[in-house]
Design a binder for these strands. Structure first.
Lengths: 230, 230
DNA sequence: GCAAAAGTGTTACTGATACACCCATGA
DNA sequence: TCATGGGTGTATCAGTAACACTTTTGC
């Protein structure tokens, strides 16, 4: 119980990561520390402070659990069923975040009692967090084709095969790699680097970087890109 | 001032209507009755009750001001800057609604102290309501091409020219009527009636109805329709 | 018979899909 | 030299865009 007859406003934050080695989408969960349901898996979250913008709350929560700042973070949906939390009347604003997952980062999360779960092997979760993740997956699939969000999930330097596999993980289906390259490159938003990733093949795959500034410019001009679908 | 050091959760509801005669998109506003800013124009809204689902709150607000139930009503975004309301800490969940505007209804709204404004002739509004409407317009434009929302704004029986003009009002641009018809009819979701609207021409235009059930079925099967763009 | 709005088809073009082979390299 | 993953080009198809005239009917 939090406190009778008062409304609480909470932030939950759905953090997606992509493991380039495993080629799997992951979600960050942690073991809830307050009753009810203490000890069960939960999205990272916290209460909004009285003098705090909700977006700042979300940034604070994200930083508390991951140490990260300045990453992709957006509001997704607000959950407000009267009985969604048996501990009291809590309205929760869900944010979602996309981050670049690397080994170092996995360790940090671990240290904070958080854990990365495969998106298709999620444990039982508290409250309506399962629903939240469903909504988040839908949004990710939707957004990944209307905006270049994929890049938020990959290292600054990434290869075409990595990008392809990321999209395949998001949509859970095979994509034709020739058409994929054509479409992605036709946006003119990728900058080919002159060095290669030789960790996954003898020939090596060229690294690319995403040209974020150019994208922002185009977006301002009302330009709309349709990224990969099938 | 509402009350110090307590957080309030409010609903605001952005109601769009389309005036078939005037061929204009409208927004429903009312004169705010509480301080601060009492007497100024505002979206319709109210506070969430302690034991009330937020969606039920939105339905209540909508009914209070319009008498309507069972119309299109969806959550849009949550506004939570700490200083957004000088009267206290209020977090507002914005819903949006699309309704069929007719003369009878315009009178009802009037009786409740609400008023319909042309979407491009809006008055000054309280708080961040101008921002809310901007976000709502964007959403309407976006959604109108990804789902058959247009029909929520027209009478049950509508003609092709009416539908065309509605879309033209939403996108604020001319559309080619031959291509428009083709695309709309290719969805197979309109049912031609065998009577005509003779109020706007001597020849008369056939009425159509939107087949909501067929759409729901298709949607369940994962079918996705792209409505008119250009 | 004429004014005013409704209704209809075809062509050109652009972008999407399907598909198979050669390349570079380390072991 | 061979096994492995990286990289490329073309032909077909489908959907979009551009475009102008005929129909109906009340006055």
């Amino acid at each position: 119980m939090y406190k009778a007859d008062q409304m609480w406003v909470a932030i939950d934050c759905l953090v997606f990561g992509y493991d380039v080695q495993e080629e799997k989408l992951k979600v960050l969960l942690f073991k809830r520390k307050v009753d009810p349901f203490s000890g069960q898996w939960s999205l990272i979250g916290g209460l909004v402070n009285y003098n705090e913008d909700i977006y700042a709350s979300a940034e604070r929560v994200l930083k508390e659990f991951t140490g990260l700042e300045g990453v992709f973070l957006e509001q997704l949906h607000t959950y407000g069923k009267a009985d969604r939390d048996p501990g009291g009347r809590v309205i929760s604003i869900l944010f979602w975040s996309l981050i670049k997952l690397d080994q170092l980062f996995k360790d940090t999360a671990n240290a904070h009692g958080a854990k990365w779960f495969d998106i298709d092997e999620l444990p039982q979760m508290v409250l309506d967090h399962c629903q939240m993740i469903e909504n988040g997956k839908e949004k990710l699939r939707f957004q990944a084709k209307n905006a270049p969000l994929g890049f938020e999930l990959l290292p600054e330097n990434f290869t075409m095969p990595q990008l392809l596999r990321l999209y395949q993980a998001i949509y859970d289906q095979q994509l034709d790699d020739r058409n994929f390259r054509k479409k992605i490159l036709s946006t003119k938003l990728l900058v080919k680097q002159d060095f290669k990733d030789k960790s996954s093949s003898k020939k090596g795959a060229y690294f690319y970087q995403f040209d974020k500034e150019k994208y922002q410019e185009l977006k301002k001009k009302g330009y709309h890109i349709e990224f990969v679908l099938k």
